[in-house]
Design a protein around this nucleic acid. Sequence first.
DNA 1: CCCCAGACTATACATGCGAGTAGTCTCCTA
DNA 2: TAGGAGACTACTCGCATGTATAGTCTGGGG
Lengths: 222, 222
Amino acid sequence: MSAVQEDLTARARLRDAAIEGFAAGGFDESLRAIAARAGVSAGLVRHHFGSKELLRAECDATVLDRYRTLKTDSLKTEPAALFAQFPSSRESGILLVYILRSVRDGGSAGRLFLERMVEEALVFTKGAVTSGLVVPSRDEDARVRLLIHQAIGGLIVYFAMRPDTPLDDFVSVMEQFYAETMLPTLEIYTEGIFTDRTYLETYLAYIAETSSTPADLARKAP
Amino acid sequence: MSAVQEDLTARARLRDAAIEGFAAGGFDESLRAIAARAGVSAGLVRHHFGSKELLRAECDATVLDRYRTLKTDSLKTEPAALFAQFPSSRESGILLVYILRSVRDGGSAGRLFLERMVEEALVFTKGAVTSGLVVPSRDEDARVRLLIHQAIGGLIVYFAMRPDTPLDDFVSVMEQFYAETMLPTLEIYTEGIFTDRTYLETYLAYIAETSSTPADLARKAP
DNA sequence: CCCCAGACTATACATGCGAGTAGTCTCCTA
DNA sequence: TAGGAGACTACTCGCATGTATAGTCTGGGG
């Protein structure tokens, strides 16, 4: 039952089991199920964490921290392909699923994850623009936010259509995802979709005559 | 409490209240809350529908049907802007939120909605390609699926970040969404993102040497 | 050797859920 | 007007959950 390392303190095992359980079954996973996954009793959660909410908070913090280190590590090895971070191991797969679930459920943790990803992508994109790899945008911030939201959202939808993907098969499903989406993504990024500039120009004229800059229009959200 | 029409049979009121409640609070909305919204007792659900699952099934069917008529109606009036169907009323807003929730939660209803949208977009896109408005793709099916998944997923993320959007403000939030995303969307569709074709050509060469057509690669999913 | 703080378990409790049951009410019909 | 079928409610049951409490075990310091 337990896929959690044996040589950790029960507290750490419980935390890791919770992360895994939340990723596998959602944040409604019961304390009893989590405790069983860690091989301990349910009451121990309260002893160590106080409540389910506090356990969740510690899981959020742990995942955020691990995601950070994972990201910096992978940036050292690979040349950082745009918006494509393969989860290469079971552990990083769990992290990604946990994050996807967080964003999907819309809590403060999900908001934090998403905002971090937008920030990272923003500095990356700005660098790519100045080095001439990427076309500049009239509103870099809005473009990056859109791309991240759609990339994460596309993943959420993809896994929603495969509800019982086991965490162990996650990497292969992820490869499948890239195999299905890489070509159209590259096509769109390289060749666009529209054959002429009419739609864009029309919209630009429209927002010009409403006497607001695109950035103003785009940044009315909270 | 009830925002449901009074001059309907209790059964219809119950069904509409369930659709509204599912959209507002998710599919875990309790039968008691749904019944209260309809202004009747909880036991009446069982009397009319038999179980919560059957009520849900009837809601799914109703929403699917209403979505279909809504779509065909709007296609008569507007010239059918690409991938942009404004929900113009509170009722159609409820429908869209219900559908987004269905896709998000990954049930059979969500799969059905999504597949329908992909099909519709596919015929639309093929028409746009032959009439020269849209650049052809090496795999039309994969491109349309990607675009729909990302459009729906982007909406799911957008509303996940605004968890307590009341159904009555939905249309204004939707306008806000378009105001934030229209410009970068049109930019990408018109101008692409990459400044040169290296990434695409490299990937095309890669999938060519693995002796599979792009369509083969993309269509290994269930 | 003692003994006690902390890790841990077993069990109880309160709550909210979907489902089930029995009974009342109302309106249409014969 | 009698009666019955269906609409509808009040109540109950079993179950799962998070929380709370009381008690057991164990290892290290006096």
